[in-house]
Design a protein around this nucleic acid. Structure first.
Lengths: 146, 146
DNA sequence: TTTTATATTTAGAATAATTCTAAATTTGAC
DNA sequence: GTCAAATTTAGAATTATTCTAAATATAAAA
């Protein structure tokens, strides 16, 4: 990628962060970049290792802080599909997650209109309001099946 | 409840445990009883406190062991709806969970046929197989709405 | 009913993920 | 450039859970 192009990409990323009301910092940019580069739902720890390759002096506490900031502003979502560490996801469309119980991989499963929550018609008790939901599918992925 | 009735209830519970191939122990009976008495999806810690009221010399390690055994044999299910401690559920029907983000309460939401997983038609990539799934609805319950 | 092999229970240590704290640094606005 | 406010940081603290190895209880056989 040429320098100008790279620069352009970077400023688009900065725009995105600013639009969400985030104070722009070197660390937040880095953490968000890392998440966008490999969308395999990394844990905070995995993000930390990837981030360190680019800025070796970043700390794990900062990674947690940045992830929290990105989640709070809505650019990133937490994925809580098992008892293990929280994973992070930049896919903001309505989707489910499949977790392979053998290899631990987490992949996005797109929902077509019919499967989206407002269309499947779950009935809540009176006075309850849903703000968010998460569908975790557990099983065996194609790479791990016998 | 009369003693005979109580006895009868207890042996039905024992049957259930035995049918699942579980070795019958005082602790497992207790832990399962506690779960059946108040189905509010307690954490291991909450189960420990309730269990201690009846058998003060039970240990937290045993509570974890018993819960694991009950989960493994299929009488109890783990509920992993947030980053906090795992919760336990004795409802074996297909259902979703609603978590109140204010008070933390977790309640069962029944699914009617149309909403069950095999009927909503989620498309998995080739070779993937689902063994289990979990729907977590997050929001505000009627008691906490403003 | 006693014996015996095996599984369960236990206290306490260990681990893992995350949060907290308070001092140092960086940022954006002026 | 200055400055207040927010961010970053190392390291300690916390929380939930798992591990370990010794003591005990259980189920089945004798």
């Amino acid at each position: 990628m040429r320098t100008a192009e790279k620069q352009n990409k970077k400023s688009r990323l900065d725009e995105k962060l600013k639009n969400r009301g985030l104070k722009l910092t070197r660390r937040r940019r880095l953490v968000y970049e890392v998440l966008l580069e490999k969308k395999d739902h990394p844990t905070a720890d995995a993000v930390f290792f990837r981030a360190r390759k680019k800025q070796p002096d970043i700390s794990i506490a900062t990674v947690y802080n940045c992830l929290d900031a990105l989640v709070k502003c809505g650019l990133v979502r937490q994925v809580k599909v098992d008892k293990n560490a929280i994973r992070y996801c930049t896919n903001l469309t309505e989707h489910a997650h499949f977790v392979c119980e053998i290899c631990g991989a987490v992949i996005d499963i797109n929902l077509n209109g019919a499967e989206k929550l407002e269309n499947i018609g779950i009935k809540l008790p009176k006075g309850f309001r849903i703000k968010d939901y998460e569908i975790a599918l557990r099983g065996v992925c194609c790479g791990c099946k016998i």
